[in-house]
Each structure stands twice: as C-alpha cells, then as structure tokens.
Design a protein around this nucleic acid. Structure first.
Ligand SMILES: NC(=O)c1ccc[n+]([C@@H]2O[C@H](COP(=O)([O-])OP(=O)(O)OC[C@H]3O[C@@H](n4cnc5c(N)ncnc54)[C@H](O)[C@@H]3O)[C@@H](O)[C@H]2O)c1
Ligand SMILES: NC(=O)c1ccc[n+]([C@@H]2O[C@H](COP(=O)([O-])OP(=O)(O)OC[C@H]3O[C@@H](n4cnc5c(N)ncnc54)[C@H](O)[C@@H]3O)[C@@H](O)[C@H]2O)c1
Lengths: 213, 213
DNA sequence: TTGAGTTTGTGAATATGATCACAAGTTCAA
DNA sequence: TTGAACTTGTGATCATATTCACAAACTCAA
C-alpha cells in the first residue's frame, strides 16, 4: 500500500511495462541495461517523469549505469500485481466482449476470463475459445461463488442499468471495466475504469479541427 | 481554434455530449433546462469543473436558469466538429477491427468507415456490414485518393511497424487511433490517440491491490 | 587507485489543473 | 415592479503534476 501516487503515474506504469517486455524480448543478454533517456525516446515521456514515477515505488536503478531491463520488468510486475492470477468474466459477449475473450495476450498478465454472460440463446452454451458463456441470470451466483473481484461490462446501454444494480446490491465485486458509453453510478468501494471508444474518436475530431488547416 | 484547452477538458467533452444525448432523448420538451449540478450527479464530475470546461468555449448557460439541453448539445457538437462527416478506415479487420466496423453508433457522430484493410484472404473481399475489405497493399493509394484524415489501427504488433512506416512516409494522414499495445513513434504533425485496453486492466489490478483488503 | 564521465533519485521551483466563493445576470412569485 | 432565490461564469486560491537542476553513487578506462 503506497501513499498518494498521482493518477497519471498509474496510467503510465503499464506503458513502461509494455516497453520493457519488448526490450526483454529483443535483448539477448539478461544483464542488459538501459536509461530513462532511452525510454523517453520510445514512449515520448520525459525522462524526469519516468524517474519520478518509479521513485514512488522504490529505487530500481543504478546511478551512472541505468536500469536492468529484467529486474525493472520484474519490479513493475510486482507493483501492478501481475504475478497473482486474476479471474474475471465478460458481461455481454457481442462484438467487443468476444474480441476480448479471444485476445491471447491477457494470459501474459495472468488474467483468466473464466466465463461470459449473455441473453442471446445463439451465443449461450457456445464456448468462445474454451470460455463457456452462460445466461445472465446466473451471473450473480457465479460471481459470488467464484469470488470474482472485477468484471468487464460490454452490454448495450439499455441492459447495463439493470445489471449494474445487481452487481452493486447482490455481489461483492470491487471493480468494473466499462465499455458502455455511459457513466456508471456506483458506491465508492467499487472502482470503475472506463474504456469509452467513441470518446477517443471524438477527441481525434477535436484535434484535427484545432491543430491543422 | 482555441488557446490552451486542458487535456482533461477535452477528455470530458465527449462525456458531456453523451449525457446530453441521453437527456435529449428522454425529454419531451425542446425547451428543457438543466443545471451543472444535475450533470455532476450523472457523471461524478464536480459542477465547477463542468462550468469551467464549458467556459473555455463560450457562454452557453443562462444565469439563474441553467443550460438548455438542446442548445448545449448543439454547441458541443460544433466544438467537437461532429457536424462534418469524417471518413476513416480500419487497418486490421480481426476481432477489434470488426467490432468497430459493426458498431452502429458511429454513424451518430458522422463517422463513415469507408473501408477495411487486411492480409487474410478469408477476410478480404468479404464485406463486413457493407464495408469492403481490401488488401493492405492498396492502403496507401486508397488513403491518398480518398483524402482520409485519420485511420484506426488494429493489427498485430509485428505488422504495425511496417504499416506505420508507410503511413508516415507515403500518406498525408494527420491522426491514428491506435489499438495496438505499443507506443507509435510519429512525426509531430500526426496525432496518436491510444486505446490500450490491457493498460485498463492493469490499472484495475493496481487499484484492487492498493485500495482494499 | 584514481578521476572524469554517467545517470539516478529527489528536493525545490514552476506550471497546470481543480476548487472555491462570489459578483452578476436572470427568473419568477407576489 | 420588486426582491428573494437561483445558477452561471470566472478571478483568486489551493492542490497536484511536471520540470529543473544537482548531489550522490556508481562505472570504467588508464
Ligand atoms: N463495438 C464497438 O466498437 C463499441 C465501441 C464503443 C462502445 N461500445 C459499447 O460496448 C458495448 C458492447 O458493444 P458491442 O458492439 O459488443 O455490442 P453487441 O450488440 O455486439 O454486444 C452486446 C451483447 O450483449 C448481449 N446482451 C444484451 N442484453 C444483455 C443482458 N441483459 N445481459 C447480458 N448480455 C446482454 C447481447 O446479446 C450481445 O451479445 C455497448 O454498450 C456499446 O455501446 C462498442
Ligand atoms: N482483442 C482485444 O481485446 C485486444 C485488447 C488489447 C489490444 N489488442 C490489440 O489490438 C490489435 C488487434 O487485436 P485483435 O484481437 O483484433 O487481433 P486479430 O488477430 O483478431 O486481428 C488482427 C488482424 O490484422 C490482420 N493483419 C495481420 N497482419 C496484417 C498486415 N500486415 N496488414 C493488415 N492486416 C494485417 C490479421 O489478418 C487480422 O485479421 C492487436 O495489436 C492487439 O494486441 C486487442
């Protein structure tokens, strides 16, 4: 448990890890070092920001030498708690939900998608990549029995209110990754992380309008 | 062209619009008003932040009365440049790419996905929801001929370097919405907006580890 | 073993963003 | 027509994040 980590620092940690994994793959030598300036070039994040971000969690570098790729990667995995296997479920196995179930990288971050939930009989009972899909009615029981800590929500907007109510009142989940384009009202012990794809596109519109001819 | 809008303000504008669209649908009356405090309740964003965000672009409210739903919605659409039809293409029509092509909401923000590109012969020439999919070899010509301003990149990492190089050196695009989990090095006239889904999950890990038992 | 050359880690300074708090404009009931 | 009740828009203030700049610690070549 750390004290007062800036939000933006948390956003950046996964980026650091992503680059380190690439570097680790590319490098032959376990003992290879790199500098915060190298990372700056790869990520477009100032080296001083990178060093300060890391400093919230400890001292991982060697002065005059830099950071060991492998050991910083290991440290970041520890910070992000990747070493503990996490179970989750996908609520709504449509386009987005299915894409997530099929994404193989998640096993690398120790994420197990143990089930999907839907209402469409054509989808239910058809396993998607080994993952069984159950009727939404079984969601609450499943989450409680399996002690799932967070869920991934990818249902249409009209279905989300009803499901959210169940999640809040009948289960003990602590997190929701939300792909629906609405803001979820939740009690404060539940962390919502939004992945609002349309917003990214609108952001692009804004930048295109305001940065060039 | 506005001066110095905070990044977070830009992130929030699409959220405001999203709520306004919901409110507009629900309300009978064209003349209905609402307050920044109402928005605060719906979005969990402080009313003072909302008012300040809007103030960067003009005065849209009426003191003592609030904001007219329809006219603020119209103003936001103008700010985000939604009224002008935008064309884009999906590079990589796999799980994510296909999900995006099939998503019907994008027409509401005047986004036309005019083509997809891939290398898989099983995917090429099979239209996905009216959208034709071409071979990646035709990408550069297509972008130049159709004067596409931004693209959506959803290919595997190994393919992205090669494609990025083409985009930078042979086309005149100004934006990339990037679903690959790597950071794209681009010249500064190109705006990259990342939608790094795995990062969201790692953020969740971090919060779960550091906020509760 | 030395010392010039590196690069980290971090307080201090700066910049940016959020919040506060209130004047100013508007509404509306009497 | 008046004035109490609202709610906006925004400077001033406060909080948070980034950048600067340098001492400290290490490297490595000679
Ligand atoms: N596809 C995209 O690119 C995209 C982009 C931005 C946002 N979104 C949002 O993500 C969400 C999912 O999008 P999608 O494209 O995958 O939609 P989709 O229609 O393909 O999938 C939704 C799935 O949810 C299921 N469902 C409906 N009601 C349900 C219920 N009560 N319980 C459980 N499952 C139920 C449907 O059967 C369907 O399989 C939507 O809220 C959408 O607005 C999607
Ligand atoms: N699916 C997810 O949930 C998810 C999550 C996070 C990140 N991503 C990232 O998004 C990207 C796409 O993921 P996906 O799950 O859709 O993968 P996918 O494998 O389903 O789709 C990738 C598509 O790109 C095509 N392709 C390969 N090489 C190409 C080339 N040179 N030119 C054009 N097309 C080419 C493939 O034929 C395939 O259709 C990947 O970079 C992945 O890491 C996906």
């Amino acid at each position: 448990m750390y004290k007062k980590i800036p939000k933006n620092t948390i956003h950046r940690l996964p980026l650091y890890l992503s680059v380190l994994e690439q570097l680790a793959e590319e490098s032959q030598n376990q003992e290879e070092f790199f500098h915060s300036v190298d990372l700056e070039k790869l990520l477009n994040i100032k080296n001083s920001v990178i060093r300060k971000d890391l400093s919230y969690f400890g001292e991982f570098g060697v002065k005059g030498k830099g950071y060991n790729i492998v050991s910083l990667k290991t440290a970041l995995k520890e910070i992000l708690d990747i070493n503990v296997i996490k179970k989750t479920v996908i609520i709504g196995c449509g386009n987005i939900g299915t894409a997530i179930i099929k994404y193989p990288y998640f096993t690398k971050i120790n994420l197990e998608i143990v089930a999907g939930f839907d209402v469409d009989p054509k989808i239910i009972k058809q396993k998607i990549n080994q993952t069984p899909v159950y009727h939404i009615d079984r969601l609450v029981d499943f989450l409680n029995k399996e002690k799932i800590q967070f869920v991934i929500l990818a249902v249409p907007v009209h279905a989300s209110k009803f499901i959210l109510q169940d999640l809040i009142t009948k289960t003990d989940i602590h997190g929701i990754i939300n792909f629906t384009p609405i803001s979820l009202k939740v009690p404060k012990h539940i962390k919502v992380i939004n992945s609002y794809i349309s917003a990214k596109i609108l952001e692009m519109y804004f930048y295109l309008k305001n940065t060039n001819a």
